[in-house]
Write a protein that binds this DNA or RNA. Sequence first.
DNA 1: GTTCATGCAAATCGTTTGCACAATG
DNA 2: CATTGTGCAAACGATTTGCATGAAC
Lengths: 131, 131
Amino acid sequence: MKSETYRNTKQRSRILEILCHTDSHPTASWLYDQMKPEFPSLSLGTVYRNLGILEEQGLLKKLRSGSTFDRYDANTYPHAHFCCTECGSIYDMRDVEIPDMVQTVNKQTPHNVLEINLSYMGICEECLKKK
Amino acid sequence: MKSETYRNTKQRSRILEILCHTDSHPTASWLYDQMKPEFPSLSLGTVYRNLGILEEQGLLKKLRSGSTFDRYDANTYPHAHFCCTECGSIYDMRDVEIPDMVQTVNKQTPHNVLEINLSYMGICEECLKKK
DNA sequence: GTTCATGCAAATCGTTTGCACAATG
DNA sequence: CATTGTGCAAACGATTTGCATGAAC
């Protein structure tokens, strides 16, 4: 049973503060290393639990969300995907254009962009039926 | 030392065949379950190894590639990311427009699209310097 | 004082790897 | 027959969880 009330803890507010002051999209263990000096008895479990709570509160987002499995696709032609956040299934979006922005974007960034990764997240047809 | 020659094995060609005849972007264990009746002594390790080889050969792609860690972002406003395939770091793409295609796409698909996930893959500035 | 969060350690789960044996070319 | 692939089981690494203690309200 999930609780609806959250308490303020030093650990949790520090995590959010660090996340708000960096744009490096940290991992849990990076946050752990950052906080360890200030909270010597901090544990990784606490970091993970708080990240989960902050995400529930909508204060942060977990990147590359979706399932935790590797998935494989024999269609190597660039195409967009639809990822269902309920059941985890992934569909091809055959009819949706994937804008060829590689050249455009390369002019706007110092990095070397090689590939676009475009996916649409939402609820799939099957899961919609079940509601 | 990585070999440059690949042999044909029943297991590997079956994996590719299954992948080519489905668009459900299978996981390794789904493939394993599919193949188990035909190859009763099949092991998951074999499936993973062959998926790796097929990817090397360019016959398939692993989806949501990049690092294996969860990463967190306190910037919940929709924005594109750049993911370096060499060092795994992730940058915000502040200046790159993320096209608001949610409405457009919803007209083209039976699923309910809620969110766009756009990332550019390539080599980051830092890694380029090291070359 | 009741409930929620923490720290610790053990468990979980997807994936990788070492090794002896089998199959390929 | 030299080399690559397989099956098995153990190892790995990120994340999760059970439980007793501590902090928040």
